[in-house]
Simulated assay, not measured.
Amino acid sequence: MTPPDAAAFIRAHLPVLPVPGLPEIHLHKAVPASGVGRLAGDEAPYWAHYWAGGLALARYVLDHPERVAGRRVLDLGAGSGLVAIAAMKAGARDAIAIDADPHALAALALNAAANAVSLDIRAGDAASLVLPDVDMILIGDLFYSDDLAEAVTAFLDRCLDRGIEALVGDPWRRPLPLARLREVARYDVAETGMAPKPSGVFRFHRNVA
């Protein structure tokens, strides 16, 4: 069976809805009738849902636009593009949105258009990414496995060596490298299908005293 065209499927089956707690942003969102498994197959369609770390990080960026205003940012593991879109709405000069999933790349383009922002959308992952020419890295919900946490931490260490700042959003998942993070904000947010729960926004450091 020929797989469906990702952009056409997303437009037809995932309605554009306001993001809970972030009414400034609207995203194509999977609903029970979407049948998103027909597109994603065996891959989890994480880009079609809300996740706590991204919700908190996007809210923080919108609440503190001075953190990104006039700066070039990179949203690593961008998924739906929520954080990159928030950065552009908060006044970022440019936002690079990177994800390894081709379906996420299609969703990124559609979500950027739905929010009238421009994103530099690229395929890639933390393990193979060349150091970007940016001022800040934004990462929501990437510390969900030990191997990925190790790869992301190594990438952020290389960024620190270049003087690139990093902010992380995460609901305290087990692989989160807490010794390398300083909490700067906390929000109660609701992942898709879940009750609200706390999620933190952290600044990444080489060492935390």
Results as ranks from 00 to 15, higher is better:
residue 108 L to H: 01
residue 88 M to Y: 09
residue 175 P to E: 09
residue 47 W to E: 04
residue 154 A to Y: 03
residue 14 L to W: 06
residue 106 A to Y: 03
residue 122 R to H: 12
residue 88 M to A: 08
residue 200 G to N: 12
residue 55 L to K: 01
residue 80 S to N: 09
residue 207 N to A: 15
residue 65 P to S: 15
residue 100 A to T: 05
residue 120 D to E: 13
residue 37 G to P: 08
residue 191 E to D: 07
residue 184 V to E: 15
residue 97 A to E: 01
residue 140 G to H: 02
residue 81 G to F: 01
residue 30 A to L: 13
residue 44 A to Y: 07
residue 199 S to L: 11
residue 4 P to R: 04
residue 135 D to R: 00
residue 66 E to G: 00
residue 41 G to S: 06
residue 98 I to Y: 12
residue 30 A to S: 12
residue 153 T to C: 05
residue 2 T to R: 10
residue 132 P to F: 07
residue 94 D to H: 09
residue 73 V to H: 15
residue 88 M to L: 05
residue 83 V to F: 08
residue 79 G to T: 05
residue 184 V to N: 14
residue 109 A to G: 04
residue 31 V to P: 02
residue 61 V to R: 12
residue 23 P to V: 13
residue 152 V to R: 11
residue 33 A to D: 08
residue 144 Y to T: 09
residue 11 R to H: 13
residue 162 R to L: 09
residue 145 S to W: 10
residue 6 A to V: 05
residue 11 R to L: 10
residue 169 G to A: 04
residue 172 W to A: 12
residue 188 D to I: 14
residue 172 W to E: 14
residue 7 A to C: 04
residue 144 Y to L: 12
residue 191 E to I: 08
residue 117 V to M: 06
residue 129 L to K: 11
residue 80 S to H: 05
residue 191 E to N: 06
residue 22 L to I: 03
residue 142 L to E: 03
residue 22 L to W: 11
residue 80 S to I: 02
residue 205 H to C: 14
residue 188 D to P: 08
residue 104 A to W: 00
residue 134 V to W: 02
residue 21 G to E: 11
residue 154 A to V: 07
residue 93 R to A: 06
residue 152 V to Y: 07
residue 209 A to Q: 10
residue 122 R to S: 11
residue 158 R to H: 11
residue 190 A to M: 10
residue 117 V to W: 00
residue 137 I to C: 09
residue 49 H to C: 11
residue 40 A to L: 01
residue 200 G to Q: 09
residue 46 Y to L: 11
residue 107 A to E: 04
residue 201 V to H: 04
residue 1 M to I: 12
residue 174 R to I: 09
residue 75 D to H: 04
residue 153 T to Y: 05
residue 10 I to M: 03
residue 1 M to H: 06
residue 189 V to W: 14
residue 177 P to D: 05
residue 41 G to T: 01
residue 12 A to F: 03
residue 33 A to L: 11
residue 206 R to E: 15
residue 84 A to C: 10
residue 17 L to A: 06
residue 208 V to L: 12
residue 186 R to C: 11
